[in-house]
Design a binder for these strands. Structure first.
Length: 457
RNA sequence: GUCCCCAUCGUCUAGCCCGGUUAGGACACUACCCUUUCACGGUAAGAACCGGGGUUCGAAUCCCCGUGGGGACGCCA
């Protein structure tokens, strides 16, 4: 069998979203699995809605997610150009073939594709108008995911608009022929278009590609498929929020596909090895951001320190967290690494670590109330301040030993000091271990915060 | 309205093709353990075969009909 050639064919008319990314991913996976070619083709025939900005977003998002294209804009290839707006001569040539074969005609200034078969006028209830139906034989779609699907295409359809621009069905098929596409992997929403496409392939005398209509991604709340306007739909957002591309890709792989064993978190190379079209599910999948977050946390956890710090810095920059960015780099690094095992996404970092970078942090009222209700917090804090004034701050272990020593003398435990100390120093009940907190903050700031807090009791 | 696709825990899914399982895993939820808070981690619990017919000794699994969900029906892609 000849080499597999698949394509991802987005139109730059809006933000790049989860559904598109998943379609691109399944194409890319199949190409990599088979040693085939992944083509990127830009379907920018809708001149009114295209934008260069959206196009760049597609390039950026694909690149960020690690899906490199073998042929397409910016990389070239033997079947270019790869932007439909630059392929007008090719469409003209193919259109002429249709005219020559008697399979196209003009009407109302547009060009229509002519179906073969007997014609009758019928009133269409849905569109509220009379239409010409053609007694056509069913188009057969051999689908790798759904099996054999038959659908009758029974109306002629426009292939070139009256303004001279060719429409999607036409250019899509022409390009698939011209670019020698062997497998068409796309969303199930295209399944009912496929009969049009099959008719066109046949009219051109070209082999019909193998189809694989993948299930759609449904919005997490409410009915219907996910659209660009839905919460959590945009790839760009995950990038901005500090999700890891490898986590997002891993999660996306699992929406409609699974390795058939109990593995979920797996390296992309392993997914490439196992991925195949018949293994793709037939039913739609609902998007679950909680599961994505869990996946992301697990990837975040195993990130090497240097990379984590670099990504964290980029995140603080995105969120314009200036006090942190102005801090000493070594201090910044320490704070950020302390927080690495605590967060689900990088976007939580600036708020989570705020008190490390300013004395103006707020005290959580609920936590304050809860902590102050137990024991003798004031006394504990005073004792602790006395201890810390001279304690060894060089290591966590040294601080821990000191506090435990104090607790033992007082007949108390570490846990009697921990909550109120944390509240005084960070204003919250969540964070790294209290010993790390003291050590990183240093003696002076720790004592100052405790003193200041004591004054509010 | 017409046509097409689909149907296992709340969600993502394994099992279905090649009928016989205590219907498995993960996320979420709950409890407990670990623990210096918060997380992580560990253990446990609850939680599903859409309904009805058929075929069969036996159906989540095969067939049919309902129902439900999704999609398409543009001179959008």
């Amino acid at each position: 069998m000849s080499q597999v050639r698949v394509r991802f064919a987005p139109s730059p008319t809006g933000f790049f979203h989860i559904g598109s990314a998943r379609t691109a991913l399944f194409n890319w996976l199949y190409a990599r699995h088979t040693g085939g070619v992944f083509v990127l083709r830009v379907e920018d025939t809708d001149q009114a809605r295209n934008s260069e900005e959206f196009l760049n977003l597609i390039y950026d998002s694909l690149t960020w997610l690690g899906m490199n294209w073998d042929e397409g804009p910016t990389v070239g290839g033997n079947y270019g150009p790869y932007r439909q707006s630059e392929r007008a001569p090719i469409y003209k040539e193919y259109l002429q073939k249709l005219f020559d074969a008697g399979r196209a005609y003009e009407k109302d200034g547009a060009v229509w594709f002519k179906l073969l078969g007997e014609r009758t006028e019928v009133y269409d209830d849905h569109r509220k108008k009379a239409v010409t139906k053609v007694a056509n034989a069913p188009a057969v779609i051999e689908d790798q995911i759904r099996g054999r699907v038959e659908r009758i295409e029974d109306e002629d359809f426009v292939i070139v608009r009256s303004d001279g621009n060719p429409v999607f069905h036409f250019v899509n098929v022409v390009d698939d022929i011209a670019m020698k596409i062997t497998h068409v992997i796309r969303g199930e929403d295209h399944l009912s278009n496929t009969s049009k496409h099959v008719e066109l392939f046949k009219a051109f005398g070209a082999p019909v590609p193998v189809y694989a209509h993948i299930p759609l991604i449904l919005k997490q709340n409410g009915p219907g498929k996910m659209s660009k306007r839905d919460q959590g739909a945009l790839i760009e957002d995950y990038q901005k929020r500090g999700f890891l591309p490898e986590a997002l890709v891993n999660f996306l792989c699992l929406l409609g596909w699974s390795p058939k064993d109990d593995r979920e978190k797996m390296p992309i190379a392993e997914v490439i090895r196992l991925f195949d079209l018949p293994g793709v599910n037939q039913s739609n999948a609902r998007f679950d951001e909680k599961k994505l977050a869990h996946m992301n946390m697990s990837y975040l956890l195993e990130l090497p320190a240097d990379r984590f710090v670099a990504l964290a810095r980029a995140q603080y920059e995105r969120q314009a967290a200036t006090p942190a960015l102005a801090a000493d780099p070594a201090y910044f690094r320490e704070v950020v690494l302390l927080s690495q095992p605590k967060i689900k996404a990088l976007e939580e970092l600036p708020a989570y670590t705020a008190y490390f970078f300013t004395e103006e942090f707020s005290i959580d009222a609920k936590v304050r109330e809860k902590v102050l209700a137990k024991g003798e917090p004031g006394a504990r804090l005073t004792e602790l301040a006395g201890l810390l004034a001279t304690a060894d701050f060089s290591t966590d272990a040294a601080i821990e030993e000191a506090i435990k020593g104090l607790a033992m003398i007082k007949g108390l435990s570490f846990g009697d000091y921990q909550p109120v100390a944390r509240l005084a120093v960070s204003g919250t009940n969540a964070g790294p271990s209290i010993t790390s907190l003291f050590r990183v903050l240093g003696r002076d700031r720790t004592l100052a915060r405790i003193t200041r807090f004591l004054a509010t009791l």
